[in-house]
């Protein structure tokens, strides 16, 4: 499959990355090269193959916590790196629902 300009713009939008026209051109070339190359996977017959989403051995299974309050309660630490904060809140440009 090949990637077109509209694909690149849509992907940039979904990724929340603003791109100049020049960058769009450059990424279009790069993405086409890479996508064209990974397309070789189509030659593998995977019809009867189940996907593997993690290389972690299923033998140990998902590990669960018990339901106890063991974390939180350190607001200063949580907001210490915030670019903008006030009165213990994170601040973002006004959002309109």
């Amino acid at each position: 499959m090949s990637v077109d300009i509209d694909n690149v713009k849509k992907i940039a939008k979904l990724s929340k990355i603003s791109l100049s026209e020049n960058e769009i051109e450059k990424f279009l070339t790069d993405l086409n090269q890479i996508i064209g190359w990974v397309d070789q996977l189509t030659e593998v017959d995977t019809e009867k193959v189940a996907p593997t989403f993690s290389s972690f051995g299923a033998e140990e299974g998902i590990k669960k916590r018990s339901d106890v309050i063991s974390d939180g309660g350190y607001r200063e630490d949580v907001i210490s790196n915030a670019p903008k904060s006030e009165e213990g809140f994170f601040l973002v440009p006004k959002v309109i629902d």
Binding site: T46, V49, T52
Partner: peptide, 24 residues
């Protein structure tokens, strides 16, 4: 951008899911 593309609607099966099968 590559990652967003291979997960996006219409491409997930052809790329992401396919790759996870090849991984198997």
């Amino acid at each position: 951008m590559i990652g967003t593309y291979v997960l996006s609607s219409g491409y997930y099966d052809a790329y992401y899911l396919k790759a996870q099968k090849v991984r198997s």
